[in-house]
């Protein structure tokens, strides 16, 4: 039942989900960054993620490295298929990553690095949405290589996914700021959290309704009778979480909105998984076909089972050290 490729597909999905949540809120802060009112608000917003952003982005490296290691064929097909969005995403991440240090080192050009942080975050997020959309809509495969054209990834559906993810990450970023800050910055965060919550839920609806029309195979999973009973909890829970999120934002419960938003992401992720499995390159290559030999998977699994709990442990420790509302006076700069 649970053979090595399936376990690895699950572990990779987990790694990607952790990445989406963790880098999601810190990319989200980049997206709402220019809308913050004062320089000191921007300082605090950036300092709220400065100690953790490297760690967050490491999950992306694990996603890429893990895909290559566990499913080399999938990696070899997906990367050339999504050549442009991946390259642009990586470059955008460079722009925002360097801003964390540079903006403190060069006060004369602070505005340039603020822009680098914003556009870098925005474009990286948009490209991740495109990658996600292109992945769901399917990738053409020829033999052991990508068989489609260079612009296959650019469709109305993928663009919609790109915008949807921008809204979603903005929601994570704004609700993180609600949890981590005080005063006027918290008020601003509430305003943008509400806006992005409405946008996110709207896009979740649109993408969810659109996806089944991309392929009869997906539609069958969602709209035929016995399966329907298994998948129905996903939209139901989504609706419940949406209500809790709305309540938390209106009643200003600082600790509610962020975890609820993560919950929403988890459900969307699950919904996506339902549409995709058992493929790793949708409707072209299955998990089993792409898997590396068992000897590779087993060797890695031993390490992952020992190391992942340790990693999660010390990552949690770092978050705990920097817990609570951010002190506007703190920061080592």
């Amino acid at each position: 039942m649970f053979d090595l490729p399936t376990i690895w597909a699950g572990l990779l999905a987990l790694a990607i989900f952790i990445y989406v949540v963790l880098d999601g809120f810190d990319l989200g802060i980049g997206i709402v960054f220019p809308f913050l009112k004062s320089d000191s608000d921007r300082d605090v917003a950036m300092n709220s993620v400065a100690p953790v952003w490297d760690g967050n982005e490491t999950w992306l490296v694990l996603g890429g490295g893990g895909l290559m290691a566990a499913f080399p064929l999938a990696y070899a097909v997906v990367m050339p298929a999504l050549y442009a969005p991946f390259i642009i995403m990586i470059l955008a991440l460079v722009f925002r990553g360097v801003a964390f240090e540079y903006r403190w080192r060069d006060k004369a050009h602070e505005k340039i690095w603020d822009r680098s942080f914003f556009y870098g975050s925005l474009i990286a997020t948009f490209c991740q949405g495109i990658v996600l959309g292109a992945f769901v809509q399917g990738i053409e495969v020829d033999g052991r290589a990508y068989g489609g054209g260079w612009w296959d990834w650019l469709t109305p559906f993928t663009i919609t996914c790109g915008i949807a993810l921008v809204a979603g990450y903005a929601l994570l970023g704004a609700t993180w700021l609600i949890m981590k800050t005080e005063g006027e910055l918290r008020e601003t965060a509430y305003r943008y959290a509400k806006l992005s919550a409405v946008a996110t839920l709207g896009f979740v609806g649109i993408v969810s309704l659109w996806t089944p029309f991309l392929s009869p195979e997906i539609a069958e999973r969602w709209f035929t009778f016995p399966q329907l009973l298994f998948v129905l909890p996903v939209p139901t829970l989504t609706a419940i979480l949406a209500v809790i999120l709305g309540w938390g934002l209106i009643k200003k419960k600082d600790q509610v909105a962020f975890p609820t938003s993560i919950g929403l992401f988890a459900l969307c992720f699950l919904g996506l998984g339902i549409g995709i499995s058992p493929y790793i390159v949708p409707r072209a290559i299955t998990i089993q076909e792409a898997a590396a030999p068992d000897s590779s998977l087993l060797f890695m699994l031993i390490g992952a089972l020992i190391l992942l709990p340790i990693i999660i442990g010390y990552t949690a420790f770092t978050y705990w050290v920097f817990r609570g509302k951010v002190d506007p006076e703190a920061g080592y700069h």
Binding site: P51, G55, T58, L62, A69, I311, Y314, V321, F322
Partner: peptide
């Protein structure tokens, strides 16, 4: 691939995790 995965799991997370502190 597995060697690089081990690099991420043993080293990258360790560096990035404790860098903040």
């Amino acid at each position: 691939g597995p060697l690089m995965a081990y690099e991420v799991l043993t080293a990258f997370f360790l560096e990035a995790g404790f860098l903040g502190v």
